[in-house]
């Protein structure tokens, strides 16, 4: 039972990170029908930026809570700025292009950003300090869920609730939903589609940055390549839940995290990534509309 509990909470932890990242994929796909291949790199850049800020502040002798807050704020702002810039450079000029063009451009951007970090920083793994504050726990649970795991799950849950409220109730959120439904119609009724797209990238990137900080603090190491597999897994989560659907991305993230955790725990840990990729392949082949997505008809 303890082992099961351990796997369950570790799955929940991974799942919340996947969900945070998957939100970025799903929002962009909902609006642009584009797989934002560079999204994983934004998450990696967020984690790197937080690491840089934290290291500088540590040397200057700041307190740990100040370090956490400053590092997180700077990382979120920078990731959002990167997300915004990526869209302007690599996707915006290709709005009218054939469907595969922006995807190829996105792959190019992903490779570019990875190597940018590698050249500007390092190609080695760097140890990552645990920036998360310890949350006191009852003894009963402390052997199956660690403090950082709990803060990951809690932070993600809060962010997801905030995002849902934002999309549901704010004017920008409504504009986003309208644009996802029908871009031309939204434009006709006066929605500034370009601004909505930028906002989507900014929100998605900010969430990714927080995901990056959480996971890097949890695993304790980072390099320029962590965005690639995390990105594909998060995309898997988005597809699993039904791409374009925000609750779907959250559900997909959790399901994928749990599935991965139990599969590695009970079957084999060598094939950790294979499970996720296999799941991706199977869903896309058998149920491309995902758990909560709607099947859309091609217009003829």
């Amino acid at each position: 039972m303890n082992y099961f509990g351990e796997l369950f909470f570790s799955g929940l932890t991974r799942g919340s990170i996947y969900a945070l990242l998957a939100l970025g994929y799903t929002m962009v796909y909902g609006i642009l029908q584009l797989i934002n291949f560079a999204h994983g790199e934004i998450y990696m850049i967020g984690a790197f930026t937080a690491l840089i800020v934290a290291s500088v502040l540590t040397v200057k002798g700041f307190s740990s809570i100040a370090i956490l807050v400053l590092a997180a704020v700077v990382a979120v702002v920078y990731s959002a700025a990167y997300g915004y810039t990526v869209e302007k450079i690599a996707y915006k000029p290709l709005r009218q292009a054939p469907r595969l063009s922006p995807l190829i451009s996105a792959i190019g951007m992903s490779i570019f950003l990875q190597n940018y970090i590698m050249l500007a920083q390092t190609s080695d793994f760097l140890p990552y300090p645990n920036l998360l504050p310890p949350i006191p726990l009852f003894n009963r649970f402390s052997n199956i869920i660690g403090p950082s795991e709990l803060s990951i799950v809690l932070t993600s849950a809060i962010l997801m609730i905030l995002l849902t409220l934002f999309i549901k109730f704010t004017k920008t959120g409504k504009a986003m939903r309208a644009t996802a439904q029908d871009k031309e119609m939204a434009m006709l009724v006066g929605v500034n589609v370009n601004r909505v797209i930028s906002t989507t990238f900014i929100i998605g990137s900010a969430l990714a940055a927080i995901g990056g900080i959480l996971i890097a603090s949890h695993t304790g190491r980072i390099n320029f390549y962590i965005g690639f597999s995390a990105g594909i897994k998060a995309f898997t989560a988005a597809v699993l839940g039904g791409i374009g659907s925000i609750p779907g991305a959250m559900l997909g993230g959790l399901v994928l995290g749990l599935a991965e955790s139990f599969a590695t725990g009970y079957i084999s840990s060598d094939y950790e990534d294979v499970f996720a990729f296999a799941l991706l392949v199977l869903i896309l082949i058998f149920k491309p509309s995902g758990l909560l997505g709607r099947a859309n008809n091609q217009k003829v």
Binding site: I45, T49, I52, V53, S55, V56, A120, Q121, T122
Partner: peptide, 10 residues
């Protein structure tokens, strides 16, 4: 941050 600051966390 990325271009100017280089950290060695070890």
């Amino acid at each position: 941050p990325i271009m100017v600051i280089r950290v060695n966390t070890i």
